[in-house]
Design a protein around this nucleic acid. Structure first.
Lengths: 153, 153
DNA sequence: ATTGTTGCAAAGGCTTTGCAACAAG
DNA sequence: CTTGTTGCAAAGCCTTTGCAACAAT
């Protein structure tokens, strides 16, 4: 995953000005390795910038997506963003339903999949959802619901 | 895929009233075997019902999704609906980028996928996008419009 | 006759846009 | 200094809700 400095570096190299808001965004996405909604981002950044506005968040998310430092994905419950993977290798993701962190899967089912009816394949999506080791509900230990042992959410 | 009568049948059996609007919806989804946006549905139905309102479309889409006769899926460009598959067998879909019809894939990559880090798998999504045999961008045959020869990921 | 459905209008979210003031380079 | 960025306010979509009239059963 891209680091704060890598994100800042790319933005700077492309001629974008490095404002405090953008530094904060870069840091947020670099530290989190999971998905965030624009609202999550706004709330996180709002802690540091009293007068933050939503449109600044949206504008920067879009710019960063276009630059390729963020990836934008649509989930059942709306649009989310995460730092780009920075992996050269083709891969998919396991996504934790609790903390929304992601873990790479290097197995790709596509080569094993037969397309029916002369279907011409262009792209594919393979996503696995569940709970990562830090967020697993119950198990052998004596806790009940998915414990949120995790910072910002 | 569910037929018009099956859809109507389920709705009737559950005590819902069969209005002309609902007949029209059932017919639309049964004839199309692909995804439709609420707007698509509104426009299609609007041809037959002058005073149709958007909220009727939304209300019925939601009711039909809850009944299980429609399936609701979030794509990059928004929410879409299709008739339920009526297949007992677990399967995935190939989705045509042109006509948005879907074709079942009975191969499931999940059994072949190793979860890293004690990840506890809950659900998964495997979708293949491309062009079906009727929508393939020009090739050896003299087909019609679709001239988007793209090569995405 | 009952009561679920509809259409209308209005409200709610989320996201985008226009613009003047501000600040990075 | 110059010009990209920000915050504010307002507008635009898409979706939902309240309500009285309507219609399926």
């Amino acid at each position: 995953m891209l680091s704060t400095d890598q994100i800042i570096g790319v933005m700077s190299a492309r001629g974008l000005r490095i404002t405090d808001q953008r530094k904060s965004l870069a840091k947020l996405f670099a530290e989190r390795n999971g998905y965030l909604t624009p609202k999550d981002v706004y709330e996180y950044m709002g802690k540091q910038y009293s007068g933050l506005s939503f449109d600044t968040v949206y504008r920067n998310l879009r710019v960063m997506d276009e630059l390729g430092v963020l990836e934008q994905v649509m989930f059942e419950d709306g649009l989310k963003f995460r730092a780009s993977c920075n992996e050269d290798q083709h891969h998919h993701h396991m996504i934790c339903l609790q903390c929304e962190r992601t873990y790479p899967i290097h197995f790709c089912p596509m080569p094993l999949t037969d397309a029916p009816d002369q279907f011409q394949v262009v792209k594919h999506k393979f996503e696995v959802f569940g709970y990562c080791k830090d967020c697993r509900p119950v198990s052998q230990e004596a806790s009940q619901s998915p414990s949120q042992q995790d910072g910002l959410s």
